[in-house]
Amino acid sequence: MLSVSGVDLDIVERGQGRPLLFLHAGEGLWPQRPWLDALAQRFRVVAPTHPGWGRSVLPDWMSSVDDLAYLYLDLAKRLDLNDAVLVGNCFGGWVAAEMAVRDTRRFSRLVLAAPLGAKFGGLHDRDIADMHGLARAEVDKLAWADPARGAVDYTKMPETEIAGVVRGREAFTLFGWKPYMHNPRLKRWLHRIDIPTLVLWGERDRIVKPEFGAKWRDAIPGATLESIADAGHFPHWEQPQAFADKIAAFAG
């Protein structure tokens, strides 16, 4: 555990080379899964567990993605990351974008993989599927190219780990309930992002459909958009090697 700005963070570090700060999805970090190893073949991966998820501590006063953005900017300073790659998926992509509109001094590349955080449609449009208004099985169908890849057997998991999952679900709700999983102002400031940016999307993502990738690309100066086949909302989870390859090609 590392205390950053008074917040106790559980951080995984893996690999050598250019630093890569990996910000995980609403589903959590799952550091035993292959994506961190795939990234660690090319980068020094620094992967914090967000406050509230897993063993990281959510302070009473913390309740917005702004807080997380400042916290991770403080973490980058604390670890003296330089010329680093900032990568975020899903909820972590939202946090990464909020960081990048504020301060990119410690980063030279940004990768947003199916980020939440911005809504481009109108009053009645749901750009981001209502994950809390659908049965878990229905959410899985939207989130995964193959839901079996994301299946977790909680009945066999130690209770301390389940506790981390349950706390994470509550924290995800805390940060993203209303407005639902986005900050209405964020899209107005995406033009401030001043480092090369890669927007990545799983071709079969139906939590946030791939068409929104183009909206993000167009909102960030000079950004490029690429897709990953046979992957849904968590491309690093379903296609860890393709995910790492794309990032290495962009920032290696």
Binding site: G133, L134, A135, R136, R169, E170, T173
Partner: peptide, 8 residues
């Protein structure tokens, strides 16, 4: 189902 146990 989703309305029976909202997180938190």
């Amino acid at each position: 189902e989703p309305f029976t146990n909202p997180p938190g």
